[in-house]
Design a protein around this nucleic acid. Structure first.
Lengths: 257, 257
DNA sequence: AATTTATTTCGTCAAAATGACAGAATATGT
DNA sequence: ACATATTCTGTCATTTTGACGAAATAAATT
């Protein structure tokens, strides 16, 4: 998206849905760490969740997918809508910053522009393995980076809340849906998926009991291969049983870690 | 809300948030039956979920609460946001009907009015005991009534989907939150809450096991009173332990019925 | 070649939770 | 006193859970 398109579109009520934004909390997992992809638009003093507006030709899910794709280069990531945010004060205190941002890129926003007005944000979260991602800096981002969920920078608007809620939703969903498919390589080891769950839930899980429960769901299956990890016993490789995984995604499961 | 206010407001971009609607699926329970409160606005051939628009001075939660209050007369009912809906086609096929509706009440909508445009709906569900409700007919409703969730009339837009999703969300939440406080009188019997759960989950639950699990949560406590129900053994009365109930609402519980 | 080290994997056991099931208690009308 | 309809309580075999420890393995070290 270049300046021309941005300029013509944000001002053109025929293209974008007014007063509605989509924010997408992109979670990345790698090496036992959970991070969030954040951006800092030009001249912004604080960071924001990746987000954008909704074209009238697309669904909110498509908008969220586009946002994820624009920033990660990956299409069709796992996307989950978890809540919408809307109240008079959520952007109020920082509208001046938004205005300055548009000025800094050479666009004068009319005072009554919907961009500076009451804004409803439909929030999604996305999961990905962040070593697979080549972060894409958008034209008007001064910075874009992965931040550990436990050490976030100062956030704009209510975005700290949005991230906190996204994390809560993820932690809740992990008990009912087979999280992991998007966060791990195709073939992974038991210790790897074990660490993933520990990281997301932020607590230690007995490895023997974890394995027992995970295997009882049937969504992962053991392969007849091992991975060499140096001077230690080689762990077996596992992969998701896509068939059962999809069923579990649709019908839900019940894990009690 | 009278015509004057409606007229001046829907056209005034300064009062309402454009392109955003709040729909509230009001569930009512009574006598072992689960129903939904539906309205049929003047000249509409089909029914809709109760809904409305968001004032720029209020949050989406307040908007949902107002909708519930306008229709039931009850304030501060249990409200839960479960999903937002937004895609180009969800209202497209029936915009002509909306236009005719406004004409029928003497208002000519401009062709480019946001009311006929792409609409994002933020959906909530609400719970109440429907014998406590005196249904409030709004000025422009031709009809408003409780419909059994299993026998809905023809629905406008994607409202049949919205109700289906609300029901799924409710059935899911019942495993994790202490549903029932809003759906039962202050004092209730064990068979009553048992039937409530059976109705919502749409399956039979062994009464002995149900009691055991319910009591183990600690959210309800037995009283030293009974209710006379005629020629049968008098059931004991129970009430929610508000303290533990609130904790459970906040922290969540884990019921496996 | 034996030993050390770090990591993975497998196994046990007591306690708790679950699912299936039946019979006793009680309030009223006959 | 008895019949009837409904509420309430209890048991038991099975399964699941939580808490542990010990054996197996791959490479580096002696």
């Amino acid at each position: 998206m270049d300046i021309k398109e941005l300029e013509s579109s944000y001002f053109d009520d025929k293209i974008y849905v007014k007063n509605v934004a989509v924010d997408n909390v992109i979670f990345g997992y790698h090496d036992k760490e959970l991070r969030v992809l954040l951006q800092r638009p030009t001249s912004f003093p604080k960071w924001t969740v990746t987000g954008g507006y909704v074209r009238k030709t697309e669904s909110i899910e498509e908008a969220a997918d586009n946002i994820a794709c624009m920033r990660t280069g990956l299409k069709n990531l796992f996307l989950k809508q978890f809540r919408s945010f809307g109240n008079p004060s959520r952007t109020k205190g920082e509208r001046e910053i938004v205005k300055k941002f548009f000025e800094s890129i050479g666009m004068e926003l009319p005072a009554d522009s919907w961009i500076l007005d009451y804004s409803v944000s439909i929030a999604f979260y996305t999961l990905t393995e962040f070593s697979r991602v080549t972060v894409q800096k958008a034209p008007f981002d001064e910075a874009i980076d992965w931040w550990p969920v436990s050490q976030l920078p100062p956030m704009m608007f209510d975005h700290a809340l949005i991230i906190a809620e996204a994390l809560k939703a993820l932690q809740h969903h992990i008990y009912h849906y087979p999280i992991g498919y998007e966060l791990l390589p195709e073939k992974f080891t038991l210790p790897e998926i074990h660490s993933l769950y520990e990281t997301i839930l932020d607590k230690t899980l007995d490895n023997r009991n974890f394995t027992r429960k995970l295997m009882s769901t049937g969504i992962v299956k053991k392969l007849d291969e091992t991975r060499s990890i140096g001077a230690h016993r080689s762990p077996y490789l596992y992969k998701f049983d896509k068939r059962k995984y999809d069923t579990a995604l649709k019908k839900g499961i019940f894990l009690a870690f």
